[in-house]
Design a protein around this nucleic acid. Structure first.
Length: 213
DNA sequence: TCGACAATAT
DNA sequence: AATATTGTCG
């Protein structure tokens, strides 16, 4: 019985096999597919210049010799990022969060370690050092969190004589349900929003009294 | 082998 | 700027 027990902890085995495998053909190297989430599209006006030059051979067909087949750009949509951060918190928002654990906790199929790894790098880069060296942007950067203020903004609704004013641009509706995310219809298991855990976010960023610009 | 991070490429 | 890839180190 060649059912060898692989000495590997393959807990989740949901590897997706891509049928089309590039047979050493550098014709279309995992072409970088640009253009992910076409959100909202706040295009105020379509500047469609009638003169569409049919001879627009703006092809930048430069050398297409890339041995290192790059993968498609992973579109880290808010939803994905949310899951990412979520997993991070479950793993102890401070550290000890390894790409593997994060990936497993995210339950996103198709996501690889490298992708999580890469994202983790960026995430950490943005969270550790002051992201806004020049120009302060209203971004929340607590000891380990980097995201738009989406939680601690509840209640405190200025009661305007009973009239509710839609002044809450912060609505966590990450969405694959509204149709804003062209996420391949899938992964709709349980979207637990257990974001009410005891937040021990160490907002105690202790810096020797020095908030240099 | 895995993970973090730096450097680099696109 | 964002993401991928590679290389180095622990």
């Amino acid at each position: 019985m060649p059912v060898a027990t692989v000495g590997l902890s393959a807990a989740t085995k949901e590897e997706k096999e891509e049928s089309a495998m590039n047979r050493l053909s550098l014709q279309t190297p995992p072409s970088l597919r640009e253009g992910c989430a076409s959100r909202g599209s706040r295009s105020s006006s379509n500047r469609a210049v009638s003169s569409s030059p049919p001879t627009i051979h703006t092809s930048l067909r430069t050398s297409n010799l890339q041995q290192t087949a790059r993968k498609q750009r992973r579109c880290w949509s808010p939803e994905l990022h949310r899951r990412f951060v979520n997993a991070l918190q479950k793993l102890g928002g401070s550290q000890a969060a390894t790409p593997k654990q994060i990936r497993e906790l995210m339950q996103v199929d198709g996501l690889t370690n490298d992708e999580v790894k890469s994202h983790l790098q960026k995430y950490r880069l943005h969270t550790r050092r002051v992201p806004a060296a020049s120009g302060n942007q209203p971004v929340v950067v607590l000891g380990g969190l980097w995201m738009s203020p989406d939680q601690y903004n509840d209640s405190s609704k200025v009661s305007s004589s009973g009239s509710d004013s839609p002044q809450s641009p912060l609505h966590l509706t990450a969405g694959s349900r509204g149709g804003t995310s062209p996420t391949e219809g899938e992964s709709m298991e349980d979207d637990e929003d257990a974001r009410s855990e005891s937040f021990s976010w160490k907002s105690h960023l202790h810096k020797p009294g020095n908030v240099d610009v």
